[in-house]
Design a binder for these strands. Structure first.
Lengths: 217, 217
DNA sequence: TACATATAATACCATACGGTATGATATGAA
DNA sequence: TTCATATCATACCGTATGGTATTATATGTA
C-alpha cells in the first residue's frame, strides 16, 4: 500500500548495530536457515515465528538485523543469485573446438539449472517478482543474461577463428542457450526430471541443429 | 495438512445444486470476476471476501457453487488453460512452404504468449504449482506440449516432402519452439516487452538457424 | 570490574483470513 | 398460489500473521 520511495533500502538493518563476531555469526545463521525455509515453501509459506523457532533466539533480534520480513527475504535472494552461477563463470573452454566447447557449456549449465536447489529458487523468483519487481531484474541479469554472455564470448572467438560463420554472437548464444535449457528446465520444474541420457541426447541434437540446421540444401 | 485422498475433486460444487438459469449466470459471474482478480494478484493475494465485494452477492453462495477457495481457483485455471491457446490450434499452414509456415507459427505463438493476460497466467501457474502439483502438469500438456505437437506435424509433413532433412519431428519442433519463445517470454515477464521489430528479427534469426545452422562447412 | 548494548524470552496487539451459522428474501417449478 | 430452494446479508469463530513492548540476561570493551 505504501508506495512512497523515500524509505531506505529494505535489506539494511533497522538501526546502527555495533558489529561483533557473535552478531555476524547470528546474522549468518538467520540468513542460511531462512534461505532453506524460503526455498522450500515460498515467501508467504514461511512465517517469521517459524524462522525464530528454527534458528533459535529471539524474534526481536531478527528485526534488528534485517529491517523486516521483506528485508530478510531480499537479502537472501541477493545471496542466492550470486551463489548459483558461481561455478559457471570459471569454466575454461579456450583449448576446445566448437563442438566440445558448446557441449561443455551445456553440460555445466544443465548441471546447475536442474538441481533441486535451483528449481526451488527459480519458482521463488517467478512467484515473487510480482511483489518485488526489482527481484526479477536482478535474477535475469545475474542468471540467463550472464551465462549467455559467457557463451557469446566463446562464439565470437570461434567466429574470428573462422570456425563459425559470422552472426551477432549474443543472438546466437541466446538461441543456443534457449534450445538447451527451456524444455528440460520446465519439465524439471514440474517434477519430471530428465535422465542423463535424455540430457546428452538433447545437447547432441541442439549442437547439431546449431552447427548444421535442418534445411535440405 | 490433510493429505487423505478420499475427498472428492475440489472443482466440484459442495452439494447437489438444482441447475437454473440464474444460478448458471451467477456461477459465471463469480468465475469471470475471480479470474481477473487471481490473474492480477495471485492466489494468496485475493481473499474470498474481496471476491464477494467485487462480484456482489453473498459469501455463502460462492461456497455453494465451488466447494471452497481452492475449488474456485482450480476451476478458473482449468478454463484459462483451454482459452489461451484456442486461436493457435486453428492455424492452417498446409499451403505454405517451410519458411512461411515456421514464421506463421512463430508470430501466432508470440502474439499469444506476450499478452499481458498470458504473462499473468504464466506467473500464476509457476507460483502455485508448488501448492497444486496437478496444475503444472495440466498447463504443460495444454500449453507448450500442445503447440509443439502442432509444429511437429508441420515439420514431419515437410520432411516427407523432402524440404527438411530427416530428424525426430518433435525434438526439432521443441528446439524451434524454445528458440522462439524462451528469451522473449522471460523478458516480457519482467516488464521488458520486446518491440515488433525485435520480435521479427528474433524470428528471422531463429528460422535461419533452424534451416541452415551456424557452422562453416 | 563497570557499563553500554546485543541477545533473549515472552506476552501482546491489531488485523486478516477461510469458513460456518443463521435467518431473511427472492425465485422458479408444480 | 404453494412450496422447496437458491440467494442474500451479516455476524461470528478459530487461527494465524507481521510487528512491537517489556523486561531480563549475556557479552564485549574501556
Amino acid at each position: 500500500m505504501n508506495v512512497t520511495t523515500a524509505t531506505p533500502p529494505l535489506d539494511t538493518p533497522r538501526r546502527a548495530i555495533r558489529r561483533t563476531r557473535r552478531g555476524d555469526e547470528k546474522s549468518e545463521q538467520i540468513r542460511s536457515t531462512a534461505t532453506e525455509l524460503f526455498l522450500g515453501r515460498g515467501y508467504d509459506g514461511v512465517s517469521v515465528d517459524e524462522i525464530v523457532r528454527s534458528v533459535g533466539g529471539s524474534k526481536t533480534n531478527i528485526y534488528n538485523h534485517f529491517r523486516n520480513k521483506e528485508g530478510l527475504f531480499l537479502a537472501i535472494v541477493k545471496g542466492l543469485c550470486e551463489d548459483l552461477l558461481a561455478s559457471f563463470v570459471t569454466i575454461d573452454v579456450s583449448a576446445l573446438d566448437v563442438d566440445e566447447g558448446l557441449r561443455t557449456f551445456a553440460l555445466a549449465l544443465l548441471g546447475i539449472l536442474l538441481q533441486d536447489r535451483h528449481l526451488a529458487f527459480h519458482r521463488l523468483i517467478i512467484a515473487e517478482t510480482a511483489r518485488f519487481p526489482a527481484l526479477g531484474r536482478a535474477w535475469f541479469e545475474s542468471g540467463p543474461e550472464k551465462s549467455r554472455s559467457i557463451i557469446a564470448q566463446f562464439i565470437e572467438q570461434q567466429q574470428r577463428a573462422g570456425h563459425l560463420r559470422p552472426s551477432d554472437p549474443h543472438q546466437s548464444a541466446t538461441l543456443f542457450h534457449d534450445m538447451i535449457t527451456f524444455d528440460l528446465l520446465h519439465r524439471a520444474m514440474l517434477g519430471d526430471k530428465p535422465s542423463d541420457d535424455e540430457i546428452r541426447h538433447r545437447i547432441d541434437t541442439a549442437i547439431d541443429a546449431f552447427l548444421h540446421g535442418f534445411g535440405r540444401k
